[in-house]
Amino acid sequence: MDALLRRGLKLSHLRLMAALAEAGQLGLAADRLGIAQPAASRLLAEVERIAGRSVHQRTGRGIALTPIGEALARRAMRVLMELRDAGREMEELAGGGAGHVRIGSVTGPALDRVLPALRTARLALPQVSAEVVVAPSDLLGQQLLAGRMDFALGRMPPGMEGELTLSAPIGAEPVALMVRRGHRLAHGGRIDPIELMDFDWVMPGPEALLTRAVMERLTDLGLPQPPQRLATSSFLLTLALIQQSNAIAPLARAVCDRFAGTGSPYVILPVDMGIVVEPFGLLTRTGAILTPVAARLCSMVMAQGGEGAEGAD
């Protein structure tokens, strides 16, 4: 970076490269930066002069970055994220501890760790606001890399090992099967696992960790793959579907325990299939430094003794 700075690399160049990586078109990148397209073209030409190599190539639909351009864009995005976080930290210090924290989590930890921590933070950190995104680990990883959240509880998404850091495992999660109250199998008696295959199962897509854990366990038990006419990672859609049909939903046991209580429209089937989703941990951008407020809220989340893990990954 020192050599690039000596050659005249400026913050405006970094902003353009980051915008190009996201937009894929010079005009859209210019719009994001609030400049005219000719000005963006001049900045791009300056970047290539400073780099001494081509950083882009034109395609039928816009611009594609060369490997060198992609490398510079990745670094540019990290520099801009760090500068933005530096600004947030300065505001937090000037505001006496006030700030906004963006948290990501897979479903189980969101209930067992994030929610209790936020209840505590309402009293201990009254000037801190928080935003929580509940999603599968691959989406959380994308949000982290885009700088749209400070930290997340989840599992390492494939292909992001070099850009994200995962803490030591916090806990694995057994999976239970949840259905609507009144379901034919919810009679409290012994269930033959082969009976489960007579009903539709609602799970995320085949690439999701939960789905893979379910399918691998069924294979180990010598059972066929269950019918799955709808694949969704939406927890709300899953709840609605099993409430209105005879579908079966494999979900984190921690999630089932909260939604299948007395008087609930849901019940847990009395069968243990031995399905366990691999442990989750704390996900952060590699090398990133949390702002003081984010670090404090992260400590509160990690201090929770929850048993949960994810139900939508």
Rank of each mutant, 00 (worst) to 15 (best):
M1W: 08
L4Y: 15
L4W: 12
L5H: 12
L5A: 13
R7Q: 09
A19K: 05
L20H: 02
L20P: 02
E22N: 06
A23Q: 15
I35G: 05
A39Q: 13
L44W: 04
R49D: 03
R53Y: 02
V55Q: 02
G62A: 06
R74F: 07
R75K: 13
R75F: 14
R75L: 14
E82R: 15
R84P: 01
A86Y: 05
E89F: 01
G95P: 08
G99N: 11
H100N: 04
R102T: 01
R102A: 13
R113H: 11
R113Q: 10
L115T: 03
P116C: 07
A117N: 05
S129E: 14
E131F: 03
V134F: 04
P136C: 04
L145S: 07
A146D: 11
R148A: 14
F151T: 05
A152R: 08
M156F: 05
M156T: 03
E161N: 08
E163C: 04
S167P: 11
S167Y: 10
E173G: 15
P174K: 13
H187N: 09
G188D: 11
R190L: 12
P193M: 08
E195M: 09
D198P: 00
E207C: 00
R212M: 09
M215A: 10
E216V: 01
T219H: 07
Q225L: 08
P227F: 04
R229Q: 11
L230E: 02
S234E: 06
A240S: 15
A240E: 15
I242M: 03
Q243G: 12
Q244L: 06
S245K: 07
A247Q: 02
L251P: 01
A252V: 01
D257S: 08
P265I: 03
P265C: 06
P265A: 07
V276N: 09
V277P: 01
V277K: 02
P279F: 08
F280K: 00
T286Y: 09
T286I: 03
V293C: 08
R296Y: 12
S299V: 00
S299Q: 15
M300A: 08
V301Y: 01
A309H: 06
A309R: 10
D313H: 12
